[in-house]
Design a protein around this nucleic acid. Structure first.
Lengths: 142, 142
DNA sequence: TCCGATACGTTATTTAGTAACACTGGCGAC
DNA sequence: GTCGCCAGTGTTACTAAATAACGTATCGGA
């Protein structure tokens, strides 16, 4: 993931926060940078380890609070099946992302909107969907 | 969930094991009973607590091994977003289940086959999909 | 009878996540 | 200005989730 790509996303994050009257504090920004710059999904405790050489005192709540905030803005998604997090560089139009995760190289592709199945049980009202596909991406696929 | 429903599923499990040359040992059977009889998704450590008044010595690996076994047979599914498990009373034709979980009453409905999106990235080969919908079921929905 | 495989027991540790409370600094009301 | 609120962060401590590693038992076949 290129640095410019990451910084574009950071700019977008700044704008989004302004729109919503939220504050992209240094910690939140740093966590977002780390997640965006990470190669594949990143674990919360790996973020913690990455944070600590810098700030020295980060503890679990620090990183989880930042991640919660970023997820609230749709800037970061949690990969539930991995207990890990990925940065979202796409449109932040809510509605939940559909993730394609390569088991080999760890790359994550994201799709939006899309493919909500039409076979929900009678009367079921969907509020949040977790859709994660694991397999092999085009590069890792013979 | 009715007891007869549960025991049907147990019978099906026995048959399935015979077909595959696997052994539905007492522990595995008991865990399956518990999962099937539970009201909604069940946590591994709740199973452990349920197991212990009976056998007295169950520890985490015991229940996780049983769950792994049962998942391998498609008799139990993991709800990744909850770190919990649900029994599967349907056809065990693999291919991954699509879960509808009510946030209010905790009921879980399951759909099979279905709804694989057609917007996978170019060349991506899906091997396993996690699809979990959260919301309100027909009963809990005004 | 011995061997190997499978399941289970046991100890310990790692990884994930949260509760609860204290502190600080900015900002508006008065 | 200063008082009081509040969002954000620091800190301690804990609960929950999962697995590693190794020992033991049991059973069926060579």
């Amino acid at each position: 993931m290129s640095r410019s790509h990451s910084s574009e996303a950071l700019d977008a994050a700044e704008r989004l926060c302004q729109e919503r009257g939220e504050r992209l504090t240094p910690i939140r920004k740093r966590v977002l940078e780390l997640v965006l710059g990470w190669d594949g999904p990143v674990k919360a405790y790996d973020l913690l380890d990455a944070l600590n050489p810098e700030s020295g005192t980060a503890k679990p709540p620090t990183v989880y609070r930042a991640l919660d905030f970023l997820m609230g803005l749709g800037l970061v998604h949690k990969v539930e099946a991995l207990n890990a997090f990925v940065g979202c560089t796409h449109s932040h139009d809510e509605g939940g992302a559909e993730l394609y995760i390569c088991n080999n190289c760890g790359s994550v592709r994201e799709r939006h909107g899309a493919a909500v199945s039409h076979n929900a049980p009678e009367g079921f009202k969907i509020e949040r969907s977790v859709i994660e596909h694991f397999g092999h991406c085009g590069n890792c696929n013979p």
